[in-house]
Amino acid sequence: MAKVWCITGTSRGLGRVWALAALERGDSVVATARDVRSLDGLVQRFPGSVLPLALDVRDRAAAVAAVAAGAERFGRLDVVVNNAGYGLFGAVEELTEQQVRDQLETNLLGALWVTQAVLPVMRAQGHGHLVQVSSIGGVAGFALLGGYNCSKWALEGLSEALAQEVGPAGVHVTIVEPGPYSTDWGGDSAVWAPRNPAYDGLRAARRAAAARHVAVEPEATARAVLELVDMAEPPLRLFLGTYPYAIAERAYAERLATWRAGRALAATADGVARPAGAS
């Protein structure tokens, strides 16, 4: 049975790739973008299967309206992909207040508003799949990406709790964690903090490391995402590409080692347990 998708951030990048893949196999897509004109090509190629909507996910009321319009047009929403987002680059000390607020408004709160809007629809129809687009940067922290890491780590915690809340209603949640792809994430859509010379050496080292990595084309992710949404019991988390595995495995090994090394000190904070009802 063909699925009905709602994908935010479909003007380019991963969102565009996934919308196109869904449409090519006969699914329908509620496609959102800040500039709805960027969706003209999809509409012309797949007339009747695309509902193009202008949406700035930071606007909660607009997110509610977009979800309602999509559900009315197609009768249901099977898959909702919270993909809209961008990268914020800069050392933690360099980030401006407005840059951090804007990052969280888009990457975290934008996904929250869409999620809240769609849950009544999915609960009423008895099924649904929320795909929350995080990043390997939502699993491990990276120098000069602290603001971005903050938004994705928060999205992961939110989504993990969400999965426990809506699973009994037949709604699945998957946190998709891509590695680096050759999208516009680090290009025109990125935001850069004012530079402090104290971090210029670190910036140069990071640029050199990035230059050694060949990013994969985003089209390579389409098959995995299509198979993911077709699963009867999809996983809570899914890496896209093998690049994230070494990073995640190293990060978790280091965390476990740190926690274990501090176990004796941690135990000093247990205190004395009191029986229930004791004053």
Rank of each mutant, 00 (worst) to 15 (best):
Val133Phe: 00
Val225Cys: 02
Pro235Gln: 11
Leu130Asp: 03
Thr183Leu: 12
Trp185Gly: 03
Val176Met: 10
Lys152Thr: 08
Glu219Tyr: 00
Ser182Asn: 12
Gly157Thr: 01
Arg212Gly: 15
Ser134Ala: 15
Phe239Pro: 13
Leu228His: 08
Gly167Arg: 14
Gly141Phe: 04
Asn149Val: 09
Asn149His: 12
Ser134Leu: 06
Val139Asp: 11
Gly137Pro: 02
Gly157Asp: 06
Gln132Met: 14
Glu156Gly: 01
Arg237Lys: 11
Ala204Ser: 13
Ala143Tyr: 05
Ser189Ile: 14
Leu158Ala: 12
Leu155His: 01
Pro194Phe: 04
Glu219Val: 13
Asp188Cys: 00
Lys152Val: 06
Val173Asp: 03
Val214Cys: 01
Val171Tyr: 01
Ala224Leu: 08
Pro194Arg: 07
Tyr181Ser: 08
Gly157Gln: 08
Leu226Arg: 05
Leu145Lys: 03
Leu155Tyr: 01
Pro234Arg: 05
Asp230Met: 01
Glu233Ala: 15
Arg223Leu: 12
Gln164Ser: 12
Val173Tyr: 05
Tyr199Leu: 10
Gly137Tyr: 01
Asp184Asn: 13
Leu162Gln: 06
Val133Tyr: 00
Gly137Ala: 15
Glu156Ala: 07
Ala169Thr: 09
Asp230Ile: 01
Glu219Phe: 00
Glu217Lys: 12
Leu158Ile: 10
Leu238Cys: 07
Tyr148Arg: 04
Val216Ala: 13
Leu145Trp: 02
Gly147Leu: 06
Arg203His: 06
Ile136Leu: 15
Ser151Trp: 03
Trp185Met: 14
Ala220Tyr: 06
Val191Arg: 15
Ala204Lys: 11
Leu238Trp: 00
Val131Cys: 03
Gly137Ser: 13
Cys150Tyr: 05
Gly138Cys: 10
Glu177His: 09
Val225Phe: 13
Ala208Trp: 00
Gly141Trp: 02
Asn196Ala: 13
Glu217Leu: 11
Gln132Glu: 11
Ala193Asn: 04
Glu227Tyr: 00
His213Glu: 14
Val173Ala: 09
Ala163Leu: 06
Pro197Trp: 08
Gly201Trp: 00
Gly157Ala: 10
Pro168Asp: 12
Tyr148Val: 08
Leu155Asp: 04
Gly141Val: 07
His213Ile: 15
Pro194Asn: 07
Tyr181Trp: 08
Ala224Met: 03
Ser135Met: 09
Ser135Tyr: 03
Leu236Ile: 09
Leu238Gly: 03
Gly186Cys: 02
Ala220Val: 14
Arg223His: 11
Ser182Tyr: 00
Ser189Lys: 07
Ala204Arg: 14
Val166Asp: 10
Gly167Ala: 15
Leu162Lys: 05
Arg237Gln: 09
Ala211Cys: 05
Val229Phe: 01
Glu217Pro: 10
Glu219Leu: 11
Ser134Trp: 01
Pro168Tyr: 11
Val214Arg: 15
